[in-house]
Computed example of a mutant assay.
Amino acid sequence: MGFSGSLEKMMVIAYQKPDFTSEVGRYVVYINPASYSHTFCVKYNDVQAQGSSGGSSEFNRIPPDTVELELVFDGTGVVPSPLPGLMPFTEDGIADQVAKFKTLVFTYNGNIHSPNYLKLSWGSFLFKCKLQKLSMNYTLFKPDGTPLRARAKGTFLGYNDEVELALKARMSSPDLTHVRTVQAGDTLPLMCYRIYGTSAPYLDVARVNELADFRQLAVGTRLLFPPLRETLG
């Protein structure tokens, strides 16, 4: 089975503001990444009594996720420009390409006192972030030493502004009404625990939803979970 559709290039879009408005530029890659890694991490505190043989790990926080990928810069003329007239080849090899990319993702922006806020956009992949690390590996040169090809390995740190973080926290608050769709393996006590942090209100939730048998939840059923203070009131 083949894949249909036109080729879509990855874009790196830079912004001045943390709410990702005020675009200041974008870079369209010459060659799409062969792969990228998206890493999620949970931090724990190691708690161990002096002299004990083992300890326990207590949850600390969930740090921002990271994306790592490699981009290729080519000034040989073998790889066509991703958009007509976007970046003509020059006697400087890949110098213009690299300079434009670094200006967007790495260079200090005096207006915001840090490098730019970034979006990595490629098909259904959209990642809001800031650059954490950039490593350039030059692999092909003119006889005079001018670089013609390079591989840039970038590590990008996920970024959410304070408004978005507040909204996410509020959406998970037990003091709000929630609607959830039953998935395979769900039980009412388990769904209550996910929302309220305790399974205790499951009988009240069953009553609110007029469930004849809370032990037999049909997959696809939408259930209402009222605010915790009302459920336990």
Rank of each mutant, 00 (worst) to 15 (best):
V98A: 09
T146D: 05
C129Y: 06
V182P: 05
I31R: 11
Q50E: 12
E164H: 06
D74L: 05
S4Y: 06
A218L: 10
L224N: 10
V79F: 03
L165K: 15
F73C: 10
M191H: 04
S124L: 12
P147K: 10
F127A: 11
S37M: 08
S121N: 08
A206H: 04
G110T: 15
D161S: 12
E8A: 09
F106C: 12
Y36H: 15
W122M: 11
G154C: 15
E23M: 13
A14N: 10
S4P: 03
N109C: 05
R229V: 04
P147F: 01
P115Q: 11
L188P: 08
M1K: 11
G93R: 09
C129L: 07
E162G: 05
S121C: 07
K153P: 02
P82T: 09
V219W: 10
H178K: 15
T177G: 07
N60K: 13
R151D: 04
G2W: 02
Q50W: 04
P115K: 13
L118T: 11
N32M: 09
S172D: 12
Y138G: 03
M136S: 08
R180P: 00
V12L: 14
L223T: 00
T21V: 03
G54T: 00
A206E: 03
R194F: 02
G123P: 05
Y27V: 03
L69S: 09
E91L: 06
V179A: 08
T231I: 02
V219E: 14
G51D: 09
H113L: 12
P80M: 02
E70R: 12
G5P: 11
T221H: 11
R180F: 00
T181G: 05
P64V: 04
G233I: 00
P143A: 12
D186L: 00
C129G: 07
R194K: 13
N160R: 13
G158A: 15
A99I: 02
V182C: 02
G220E: 04
F73I: 08
Q16C: 06
T107P: 03
Y27D: 05
V105Y: 09
R149E: 05
D46N: 14
K43I: 01
H38L: 13
T177S: 15
G55K: 08
P226E: 06
P84N: 08
L211P: 07
V47M: 11
K9H: 15
K43S: 10
P84G: 07
H178D: 07
I62Q: 11
T39C: 02
F127C: 13
A206Y: 01
Q16G: 14
L71Y: 01
R229P: 00
L69G: 11
K102L: 06
T107D: 15
V179R: 13
A95Y: 05
A99L: 05
Y30M: 14
K43D: 14
L167W: 02
